[in-house]
Simulated scan of single mutants.
Amino acid sequence: MNTSAPVRDQALLDRLPQAQRERLAYIDFRLYFLGELRRIDVADRFGTGPAAATRDIAQYRDMAPSNLELDNSDKIYRPTEQFVPLFEHAPQRVLTALSRGFGEGIGEELRPMVRCEFPIALAVPSMSVLAPITRAIHRGKVLRMTYTSVESGRTEREIVPTALVNNGTRWHVRAYDRRRNGFRDFVLTRMENPVLLENSPIEDKEKVDQDVQWNRIIELELVPHPRHPRREVVMMDYGMPDGVLRVKVRAANAGYMLRRWTIDCSPDHSLEGLEYALWLTDPLALYGASNAHLAPGYVDPKGGAETRPITAM
């Protein structure tokens, strides 16, 4: 199938109501990634009747007549060899839908659309902790909680949460810490009894636009590790036909990302092992990043190899 053609009838799609676009996108998704579509698939997903599902499929066919054909043997629509997706499907969203369901299921029930396996989450935050944090972020409120850290043990904190962050192994919240008078990362599983302080005003210095590390964007240039025996495999794995992968990341998250992907950040690409598939060509790009010490092999140009504790890992 041709997957590189541009989205067609974009102007018409833009004029449709959001609910209509969602139904057409779902039809497009099932044809593209599952290779089949039934009227009942649309009706069940959106809670509409068979007649409404028929109208949606007819509209899709009007917009992309060469994308689907009816298999009369089992009354299933299938993509044609000329199929070109009508919508752009973001890879991360597609993989989430295929592995965890396209919005189906409630509670802890997961309904993957194809057989799929993904890493077990060993550290999962309590919903009674997560909910007050997300409310505080959304409403711009101060949060009081008990927090246990490696450095300070168990203490009472007032924080101003600004963003949730997943570092690849666990969730934490970026927040202004009134105890330390600065922005810090707080691991959700180390929090107890978070409570919103409805009447506690937030000062200008506590707002996200004052978080220098969060707002500073670093561009990292990554290349296949010079010691890796199969450069071409690394290029295929990371989609880098010209041999370079350029990534933009917040300074506040750079160390987490580089550690998660085991990227060699030593000045002389000295780390050994197949796990180091990529090398950061310019480690000085990390200079000033608060968690640069988490990056494998990183050497502080002012003071040698970093040895500070991993406070949010």
Rank of each mutant, 00 (worst) to 15 (best):
N2R: 11
Q10D: 08
A11E: 13
L12Y: 13
L13H: 03
R15A: 15
L16E: 02
Q18I: 12
Q18G: 05
Q20W: 03
Q20I: 10
D28T: 07
D28R: 07
F29D: 01
F29A: 03
E36N: 13
R39W: 00
G47W: 02
R55L: 14
R55E: 09
I57V: 15
Q59N: 13
Y60A: 07
R61A: 15
S66L: 13
N67L: 03
L68F: 05
L68K: 04
L70T: 08
D71Q: 14
S73F: 09
S73C: 04
S73N: 11
D74F: 02
I76T: 15
R78Y: 00
P79D: 01
T80F: 06
F83P: 07
V84P: 00
L86P: 03
L86N: 03
F87P: 09
E88S: 09
E88I: 09
Q92F: 01
R93V: 11
V94D: 01
A97M: 10
G101K: 05
I106C: 03
G107F: 06
E108W: 12
R111L: 11
M113Q: 14
R115S: 14
C116W: 14
P125L: 13
S128D: 15
A131N: 10
A131M: 09
T134S: 10
A136Y: 06
R139W: 07
T146D: 15
G153Q: 08
T155I: 14
T155V: 12
I159F: 07
N166T: 00
N166M: 04
R170F: 07
R174C: 06
A175P: 09
R178A: 10
N181T: 12
R184H: 10
R184W: 06
D185A: 08
F186G: 04
R190Y: 07
E192G: 06
P194M: 08
V195A: 14
L196D: 01
L197G: 03
E198A: 13
I202F: 09
D204V: 09
D204G: 02
I217R: 15
E219Q: 15
E219S: 13
E221H: 10
P224S: 07
P226F: 01
R230A: 12
R230E: 14
R231M: 01
E232C: 00
V234K: 13
D237C: 11
M240E: 05
D242V: 05
K248H: 12
A251W: 03
N253E: 14
A254R: 02
R259M: 12
C265V: 02
P267C: 08
D268N: 14
D268K: 07
G273Y: 03
L278I: 02
L278V: 05
Y287T: 13
G288R: 04
A289T: 02
A292E: 04
H293E: 09
A295E: 02
P296K: 06
D300F: 03
D300A: 04
G303V: 02
G304Y: 05
A305D: 01
A312N: 13
A312P: 07
